[in-house]
């Protein structure tokens, strides 16, 4: 009896998630971190928020999103990248497993066009994902984005560039990606593979966490050593 009630609740929870637009994805995300996500899979059909202060920080964030998308979607998927101050250089996306010709850029003239275009794009099921570099996103706007994806199941990524106006939003998660010194094997000279500290600050129905991940051979590889060394104390500080 007790077990069946728990099952019912689990079932109902699953139904609610479906109604909220969640899709389960089968990505090659590092195993240890999947428990951070509801159902141990990255939620698609939702809006994710990335905090990104310095303009230099946009690069690791963009790289992480690109790497994520290359695992979550087929190569044919079209991505719309909306920004009012874009510096993204398309050929570099190829290194993160995306096909740069499948990325459409919208360089808006005004900040308010970004939010409008993002909402409009999130309603279009022909897209795989929409990335928007948004300065200020108020709660109402984020709620509108969330409602748009619930109908179309497109995944939205909001890159917040103005950390001074961070507020409560309706986004399903909040991330911060920062660069760490690159990884080289056997003390080879040079810069090596990019290493990022991935902080999951909030995840609806999931568990926040912090990982250090290396991007190598078009895959995320978790760096065990760094987690203890660098990520541990930082996590408490947040």
């Amino acid at each position: 009896m007790h077990a069946s009630v728990a099952d019912r609740i689990k079932d109902l929870k699953a139904q609610i998630m479906r109604l909220e637009g969640f899709k389960s994805a089968t990505g090659t995300w590092p195993d240890t971190s999947t428990r951070a996500f509801p159902w141990r899979s990255f939620p698609l059909g939702a809006v994710h928020e990335f905090l990104c202060g310095d303009r230099v920080d946009v690069s690791p964030t963009a790289g992480f999103i690109a790497g994520l998308l290359s695992h979550l979607y087929s190569k044919q998927g079209v991505i719309l990248w909306i920004s009012a101050s874009r510096r993204l250089f398309p050929p570099a996306l190829a290194a993160f497993g995306l096909r740069p010709e499948c990325v459409i850029f919208l360089d808006a003239a005004r900040e308010r066009d970004v939010t409008w275009a993002m909402e409009e794009a999130l309603k279009c099921p022909a897209l795989s994902a929409v990335v928007g570099e948004i300065r200020d996103l108020d709660f109402t706007a984020s709620r509108r984005l969330q409602l748009a994806v619930e109908r179309s199941c497109v995944t939205g990524f909001v890159i917040r560039k103005n950390l001074s106006t961070i507020n409560t939003t309706a986004c399903v998660s909040r991330w911060r990606i920062t660069s760490l010194p690159g990884a080289t094997d056997d003390d080879m000279p040079g810069v090596g593979f990019p290493v990022w500290k991935i902080e999951l600050l909030r995840m609806r129905n999931g568990q926040p966490g912090c990982w250090v991940v290396r991007w190598m051979n078009e895959e995320f590889v978790e760096e065990q050593l760094h987690v203890a060394a660098t990520a541990g104390p930082e996590r408490k500080a947040i």
């Binding site: 079209v78 398309p90 050929p91 740069p100 010709e101 990325v103 459409i104 850029f105 919208l106 360089d107 808006a108 003239a109 066009d113 409008w116 275009a117 409009e120 794009a121 279009c124 099921p125 022909a126 897209l127």
Partner: peptide
């Protein structure tokens, strides 16, 4: 087709030259 229609809607609002796609 739906993608083309979305692009038209966006282009008519922000201007067609602001929507870009790159090839090598």
């Amino acid at each position: 087709v739906r993608l083309a229609e979305l692009i038209d809607r966006l282009a008519n609002h922000v201007g067609a030259t602001r929507i870009k796609r790159y090839l090598p």
